[in-house]
Design a protein around this nucleic acid. Structure first.
Length: 591
DNA sequence: GCCGTTTTCGGCCCGACTGTTTTCAGTCG
C-alpha cells in the first residue's frame, strides 16, 4: 500500500487527538483519574511524534506496546479505533462530558474545574453558548467568578480565535530578537537569551520566551522597567521574577528574571521541550537529585549542585550537551548518554547559496550587485548560483533559452570584473505536468547547476513528476519539494518514501528552502532523507538582498532534522559540487 | 494507565502567578 507522509501525519494526528480528548475527559472526571489522564496525554504525544504511520501497527499490539507511554490498554484502544473508527470507552466518556466541552479545555485559562462549573451550573457545552452567557451576564454572581476571572475567560476565548494563526519561526525570531536587544540595553541585565520553541527552532511559535540574568536586588527594578518597554499593548502578568507581555501583533512574550546560579537551569527549563525536561528530571531523580528551574539540587540535603550554564548541567547529569534543536525527546537523550550525538551543521559550514533570483527574472537586484553584496556580507561564501526562472513561469518573467545564453555572457563579465569566479550559472527549471522540463536538454547541460521545481498543479499527487525530474541527468536538485506555504497552502501529496529513495539512487539533492513561508523540506522529512543518505542543499531562494539572511533559518531547519555538515551539499567546495554534477550526467548517459 | 538495574505495586516533575478567598485551588509552562 502506498502511504504518503502527509496522510501519515493526518492519520497519526487523528489518533493523537482522540487520545488527547480521552485525557481531557479523565481530567474532567477529577483528581482520582489524574494519573490516567497523564498517561493518555503522554500516549497522545507519542503518536503525534511518530515517524511511521500508526496504521502500520494495527495488527501488531506488541509493537504498539513497545512505544513510549503506550501499554496494553491504550494499545488495544488504538487498534480498536483503527479497525472500527470508534473506541467504546471514549463513547462512554462522551456520555458524561460532551465532546465540545473537551475541546474547550484546550483554551488558555480553561481547565477541568472551570469547564465543570460552566457545564453543571450554567448548562454551557460550547464556546458559542459561553459567549452568549457572558453577554447575558449569567456568569456574574457564580461563586468564584469575579470580574477579573470573567475578563480572563473572555480573553481566553479571543486568543483561541487568534491562536489559529501561530507566528512563523522567522517572524518570531525577528520579534524576539528585537525585544531581546531592548532588554539587553538595561544596565541591570548581565545576560539575556531567547528560550522556548523559538530557540528549539519549531516552525511555528505560540509565544516568545526570554531568560534574563540579574542580581537578586535588581530583579524587581528590572521587572518594572521591562513592563514599560515601548511596543507593549498589555501586561498579562507582572511579578518580581516573571513578566508576561502582549505585543502589538498579539504575540505573547514571557520574560523570566533569574540570578547567576540559576541562569543555565532557567534556560534549560524554559527552552524545553516539556518532554525533554521531564526525561531529564527523571534521570536526576534516579541519581538522588532534584532538577528545577533554579538548578540541580541534592534531594536529601537540598544542596545546590549545578545551574550556572546548560553545559554544566548536562555534564553533571552525565550527558553530552544537547543542542536546543534536538530537545524533543526523540532519542537525543539516549545518544547523549553514549556520547554519540551527531555534530550538527552550522551557519559557518555553509560555503554558498545555490538557489536565488536576479533582475533577469523576478529578483530585485542585478547580478553584479548581488555578487558584491554577498561577498561583503558573507565573506565565508565561495560561490553564488544564480537560478532564474525558465519560460513557463510567465508571471515571474521566466527566461527563454536565448536569454540564458545572454545571461551566461553577463555572468562571465561580472566574474571578470570582480576578479574571481564567484557567480555560477544556474537555473530553476519548471517541472511540467508530465514530468518533463521546460528547457531543452542540450541547454540544461550547459548550466553549472540545475534546480527543478514544481510551480503548477499544486493540488494533485506530484510523486510521479518529481520522480521523473530526479531521473533527468542534468537535474541536480529538487527545489521546495513539498510545495507548501505554511498556513496558506497545504503541501501537495507526495509519496516521500519513493521520492527519497529515488533521490538517493539518482544522486539528486533535495532542497531545504529557507523562505519563511516555505521551510520546505520540513524538519521531519529532512531526517527521513538523511537517514537514506540523500544529499540536501540549504537555499534562501533569495529575491532581494535581505533574503540572504534566511540561510540561518535554513540551517536551523536542517539542525532540527539532525543534519550533519556531511549531509549538506553547499558545505563543500565548488570543485566537489562540479564533480558530483559531472558524475550524474555521465552515469545517466550510459543508461 | 504506565512503568521497573532496589520495585509487578505504588509511585507518577515542580514552582510561579492569579484571583478569590483569608489559606488555597486552579492553571500554566
Amino acid at each position: 500500500m502506498i502511504q504518503t507522509t502527509e496522510n501519515t501525519i493526518k492519520q497519526n494526528a487523528t489518533v493523537a487527538r482522540l487520545l488527547h480528548h480521552m485525557a481531557s475527559g479523565y481530567k474532567y472526571l477529577g483528581n482520582q483519574e489524574r494519573f490516567r489522564a497523564i498517561a493518555y496525554e503522554i500516549a497522545a504525544r507519542t503518536v503525534n511524534n511518530l515517524q511511521a504511520d500508526i496504521s502500520a501497527y494495527a495488527e501488531d499490539k506488541k509493537a504498539l506496546d513497545q512505544l513510549n507511554g503506550i501499554g496494553s490498554s491504550i494499545a488495544e484502544k488504538i487498534i480498536e479505533y483503527l479497525k472500527t473508527g470508534k473506541v467504546k470507552k471514549y463513547e462512554e466518556l462522551k456520555q458524561q462530558i460532551p465532546e465540545e466541552l473537551l475541546d474547550m479545555m484546550d483554551i488558555t485559562g480553561f481547565g477541568p474545574a472551570l469547564v465543570k462549573v460552566l457545564h453543571e451550573q450554567l448548562g454551557i457545552n460550547t464556546r458559542a453558548e459561553l459567549l452568549k452567557a457572558i453577554d447575558e451576564g449569567r456568569l456574574e454572581g457564580i461563586k468564584g467568578f469575579g470580574n477579573k476571572k470573567i475578563e480572563n475567560i473572555k480573553r481566553g476565548l479571543h486568543l483561541f480565535e487568534e491562536a489559529q494563526s501561530r507566528l512563523l519561526l522567522w517572524d518570531a525570531l525577528l520579534a524576539g530578537n528585537k525585544i531581546l536587544q531592548a532588554i539587553r540595553q538595561f544596565p541591570e541585565v548581565r545576560k539575556a537569551e531567547l528560550a522556548g520553541s523559538v530557540r528549539r527552532g519549531r516552525e511555528t511559535v505560540g509565544d516568545i520566551d526570554i531568560i534574563v540574568m540579574a542580581t537578586l536586588k535588581d530583579q524587581k527594578k528590572l521587572a518594572d522597567k521591562i513592563q514599560k518597554l515601548p511596543g507593549i499593548v498589555r501586561i498579562l502578568a507582572g511579578g518580581d521574577t516573571k513578566v508576561s507581555l502582549l505585543l502589538q501583533n498579539q504575540t505573547q512574550v514571557d520574560v523570566r528574571i533569574v540570578t547567576e546560579n540559576a541562569y543555565g537551569a532557567a534556560l534549560l527549563y524554559f527552552t524545553g521541550s516539556k518532554e525533554h525536561n521531564v526525561r531529564l528530571r527523571i534521570i536526576a531523580r534516579e541519581k538522588g537529585w532534584k532538577l528545577n528551574e533554579y538548578g540541580l539540587f541534592d534531594l536529601k540535603t537540598d544542596k545546590y549542585l549545578a545551574g550556572k550554564t546548560e553545559e554544566e548541567m548536562y555534564r553533571y547529569i552525565g550527558l553530552q550537551f544537547i543542542p536546543p534543536e534536538l530537545r524533543e525527546d526523540k532519542g537525543e537523550i539516549d545518544l547523549a548518554a553514549k556520547n554519540k550525538l551527531p555534530v550538527l551543521v552550522t551557519l559557518k559550514d555553509i560555503k554558498g547559496d545555490m538557489h536565488l533570483h536576479s533582475k533577469w527574472s523576478d529578483g530585485e537586484e542585478e547580478i553584479e550587485a548581488l555578487a558584491r553584496y554577498v561577498m561583503k556580507t558573507f565573506p565565508q561564501y565561495e560561490y553564488l548560483v544564480v537560478t532564474d526562472h525558465s519560460p513557463s513561469e510567465r508571471i515571474s518573467h521566466g527566461l527563454e533559452p536565448d536569454d540564458f545564453i545572454r545571461q551566461f555572457r553577463e555572468i562571465d563579465q561580472v566574474n571578470k570584473k570582480i576578479g574571481r569566479d564567484f557567480i555560477k550559472k544556474g537555473v530553476e527549471v519548471d517541472i511540467l505536468a508530465d514530468g518533463q522540463l521546460d528547457l531543452p536538454d542540450d541547454l540544461l547541460e550547459k548550466f553549472d547547476w540545475v534546480v527543478a521545481s514544481i510551480h503548477s498543479g499544486l493540488a494533485q499527487d506530484n510523486t510521479q513528476r518529481l520522480l521523473k525530474a530526479c531521473e533527468h541527468p542534468a537535474v541536480n536538485c529538487i527545489g521546495h519539494p513539498g510545495g507548501r506555504l505554511v498556513g496558506t497552502r497545504d503541501a501537495y501529496p507526495v509519496n516521500w518514501r519513493q521520492l527519497i529513495d529515488k533521490a538517493a539512487a539518482t544522486g539528486t539533492a533535495l532542497e531545504i528552502n529557507a523562505q519563511p513561508g516555505r521551510m520546505d523540506l520540513q524538519d521531519d522529512l529532512v531526517k527521513m532523507a538523511i537517514d537514506k543518505g540523500v544529499q540536501l542543499v540549504i537555499d534562501t531562494d533569495a529575491h532581494a538582498k535581505m533574503h540572504f539572511d534566511l540561510m540561518q533559518l535554513g540551517v536551523t531547519i536542517a539542525r532540527r532534522g539532525w543534519c550533519k555538515k556531511e549531509d549538506v551539499l553547499n558545505t563543500i567546495s565548488w570543485r566537489e559540487v562540479t564533480a558530483l554534477r559531472n558524475k550524474k550526467i555521465k552515469t545517466k548517459r550510459k543508461h
